[in-house]
Write a protein that binds this DNA or RNA. Sequence first.
DNA 1: ATCAAAATCAATAATGATTATCGTTATTAT
DNA 2: ATAATAACGATAATCATTATTGATTTTGAT
Lengths: 126, 126
Amino acid sequence: MKYSKQREIILETLQKNAMHPTADMVYSILHVQYPNISLATVYRNLNQLTQTGVIRKLDGLDGSARFDHNTHKHHHFICAKCHRVYDVPYEVVPELATQAAAQTGLAVESCDIIFRGCCPDCLVKN
Amino acid sequence: MKYSKQREIILETLQKNAMHPTADMVYSILHVQYPNISLATVYRNLNQLTQTGVIRKLDGLDGSARFDHNTHKHHHFICAKCHRVYDVPYEVVPELATQAAAQTGLAVESCDIIFRGCCPDCLVKN
DNA sequence: ATCAAAATCAATAATGATTATCGTTATTAT
DNA sequence: ATAATAACGATAATCATTATTGATTTTGAT
């Protein structure tokens, strides 16, 4: 993989904005400082970074995919009202994959957990 | 909600085909016997059935949403090779939502778990 | 059984997210 | 410095899904 300035600033954006932005959000943020960057470039590089394991792609949270610079094992919580995504530390959840594998006989390799509810911020506001 | 023949056969299709079909698959199956049914009708009714709790919509498994006639609490396993979806009984997984709520302080209301790996069928074939 | 109101339908246009294409530009190994 | 190639920007294309519209069914009251 060849170096590119664009990939670098896309990764930086993800690291600075830990709020699990969508591709479009990353584009919007970058577009301010770099008006020439293309949305296609953002998608292209987010996918590449995902494939090489530098970042993580989160599907099924919302309408569109979100991207996470934190590649350590952890899970997610999404607020039904504001749609903000929160991290749920891995330790909170037991070794589900291996447990489920043992009990079902399926060759489970991983598992994704999405918790849903109302976030503290939205609870206060209502 | 008013009765409609179309909604009835869409629900029947889901009950007969427990393989978690996509809207498009439901349409393809029905189109053989009912060439006049519209894809939009399938989407509309699958959404209605989901909203009234008759069926369940599964997001984040694959590219497109899948539908499940089984509304009992359970989780899912998707094979990385053939993309078939298997049910994982609820009992296999402990009371995650309440546990996670207690440990994170978030108002967790529910959680979806997707297990990933290779299904028995594909294991044999390789 | 009849008729109007409400819901649903089929067909299709529109939308939103994402990917593919293509001619140009930047990076890297020689 | 050059040639090979990977990446870029712009935009067209694709895919899944939703909205629109005018016609048809279903329902409930007469």
